[in-house]
Computed example of a mutant assay.
Amino acid sequence: MSKPFSFSLLSIITKGPFAFYLLPFAFLLASCTMNPDKQKPGEKYVQGEWRQDSVPAQKRLVSYSLYDLKFSCDSFFVKISSYSKVNYGADSCMNSGHWAEYIKGTYTQRQDTLHLKGEFCNADGSYKDEKGCFRSGDYEEYFKVKQKTDSLIQFASTSNVIPINAHLIKRTSCTPKPL
């Protein structure tokens, strides 16, 4: 009676002269995971559009930024409107002390910390050329989040001293889209 054929990666790795060379590939293969085919649902309480109207002592500040945030499932889109009384660069970029930057990406939340990870983009969400005005490339930020009311959230950045007090403009619900 013959023994049934059995094939396993372990048997190949542990037997034969090439086992030493196959070992790194076995670990690589074991560490691969498939990407999800749909968006994750994200956090229900942030779904929608949020706006920061002002910052404390804004009239006395030399420069400040106001945020418009949009959360859809596990994705975000942010518009940062910056204002400055000092011209730091070319006026074609600074636009007489007012300019906007845009960021898109995905977010996760662990306890009270919201982690935004994405990239700078154009207003339409398209790729931003590195030779353009202001920041380009990767964006990563952590915010301590306090939900003050159903329609007011405070985002306290770990890299900025001025918190973002954003009020709800439009509530939406998550409908995961295919990726």
Rank of each mutant, 00 (worst) to 15 (best):
P176I: 06
E119G: 12
A19N: 15
K104C: 14
K59G: 04
P17Y: 03
A30W: 14
V145P: 00
P178L: 09
P17I: 10
I12P: 04
A30D: 03
A156H: 02
Y21I: 15
N122M: 07
H167I: 11
S8F: 09
D138Y: 10
Y83M: 06
L114D: 05
I153D: 00
T172D: 09
S92C: 05
A57P: 00
Y139A: 02
D74H: 05
E49C: 11
A156V: 02
D68R: 15
F27C: 07
P17R: 08
L29V: 15
Y83D: 05
G105L: 09
V78A: 04
Q109A: 03
K144I: 02
D129E: 14
D138F: 09
P17E: 11
K15V: 10
K128C: 04
Y102N: 00
S31W: 13
S157A: 11
S31N: 15
K59S: 15
A166Q: 04
D91A: 13
P4L: 06
L66E: 03
Q111R: 15
I164F: 15
K104D: 14
F120V: 11
T158F: 06
R60W: 11
Y21V: 12
K85T: 10
I13A: 08
V62N: 07
G89F: 01
G132F: 01
P17S: 08
L22C: 09
L61R: 14
P17C: 12
F25Y: 10
N35F: 14
L23C: 05
K3F: 03
K38C: 12
Y139P: 02
D68G: 10
Y88P: 13
T14G: 02
C174N: 01
D124F: 09
A100T: 12
R60T: 15
F20Y: 13
D150F: 06
Y64D: 11
A26I: 13
Y21K: 15
S72F: 12
Y139I: 03
I12G: 03
D53F: 12
S31F: 12
D53A: 06
D150M: 12
